[in-house]
């Protein structure tokens, strides 16, 4: 997803950050969300990610709530499994009992449910506020990622909006054949029927991108200039310090009130 660089400095603070410190912070927070088996910690993670997306990027309350839906559906699977098949959730119960920050009385199912949303929101925070091009350039420049792998990753990251755009075209063509307007959001049956043509598009898009990059000189040999790679700034330090301090406070709170 492209970054709205023309927006105000506060409104797109997250979008302007260097991708690598943001990636490290998000990874640390993801590890904490996986390790800490406590509903309050997961809830804090969700709230902080949601507030950050609303205050320091361009997302409305409704969009953030909408973002949570797929993660909530995924997490609901854990919750129902935990409730309906208690024998099957021994491992989770054991995890809950052994976890250092666990709060007694909180169902393992609820923790798993919230953890799915928390991990999803942290991932969404990173992917939705990071330009794929900037990430690839930063990885190539700072972590010496091979350009071939970097641009393959770039194509993969860009595939999501491209698939959405192609899906719209296909839906318009089908709507024309049916003789009625497409629904704003495709139903389940329409969604499934789009999968095969979109898979074909993805394969075609990938092969065209490979040919285009080869024709324009992308190779593994020789030096390559990286133009416009993100540069570390003071705001990256501020973000990392603030995010890690918040993580520490959340962990301590959970520990103190366990």
């Amino acid at each position: 997803m492209s970054t709205p660089r023309s927006a105000g400095p506060v409104a797109c603070f997250l979008d302007q950050l260097h991708p690598l410190p943001k990636l490290i912070v998000c990874l640390i927070w993801l590890v904490a969300a996986i390790m800490v088996f406590d509903a309050r910690f997961q809830a804090i993670t969700i709230i902080l990610a949601a507030v950050a997306l609303m205050l320091f990027s361009r997302f409305s309350v409704w969009l953030v709530l909408g973002l949570m839906v797929p993660f909530a559906l995924f997490g609901a699977g854990f919750l129902t499994t935990s409730i309906l098949f208690r024998d099957g959730s021994d491992f989770a119960d054991k995890m809950a009992a052994e976890a250092p920050f666990v709060s007694e009385g909180v169902s393992a199912g609820i923790v798993l449910f919230l953890r799915a949303i928390a991990c999803g929101m942290v991932s969404a925070l990173f992917t939705l506020t990071t330009d794929p091009g900037d990430l690839v350039k930063a990885l190539m420049k700072n972590w010496r990622l091979s350009p071939r792998i970097g641009y393959a990753l770039f194509s993969a990251l860009n595939l999501v909006p491209d698939l959405a755009s192609e899906a719209q075209q296909i839906r318009l063509a089908r709507a024309m054949k049916r003789g009625r307007l497409p629904r704003r959001i495709p139903g389940l049956a329409e969604g499934f029927s789009l999968m095969l043509p979109l898979l074909a598009f993805a394969i075609r898009r990938a092969s065209r991108a490979a040919i285009a990059m080869e024709a324009r000189g992308l190779s593994r040999d020789g030096p390559r200039t990286i133009l416009g790679a993100p540069v570390l700034a003071r705001r990256d330090g501020v973000f990392a310090a603030l995010a890690l301090a918040l993580l520490a406070v959340a962990l301590v709170q959970v520990w103190l009130f366990r």
């Binding site: 091009g133 770039f154 194509s155 491209d162 285009a212 324009r216 000189g217 190779s219 200039t225």
Partner: peptide, 27 residues
């Protein structure tokens, strides 16, 4: 779409020149 790789406009135009390893200012 066969020539372009899906980047931002300025990155698309610079891509082949970056692959040649040209000086950033020249690019």
């Amino acid at each position: 779409d066969q020539t372009l790789c899906g980047m931002r406009v300025e990155d698309e135009i610079a891509f082949a020149l970056e692959n040649q390893g040209l000086d950033p200012g020249a690019i």
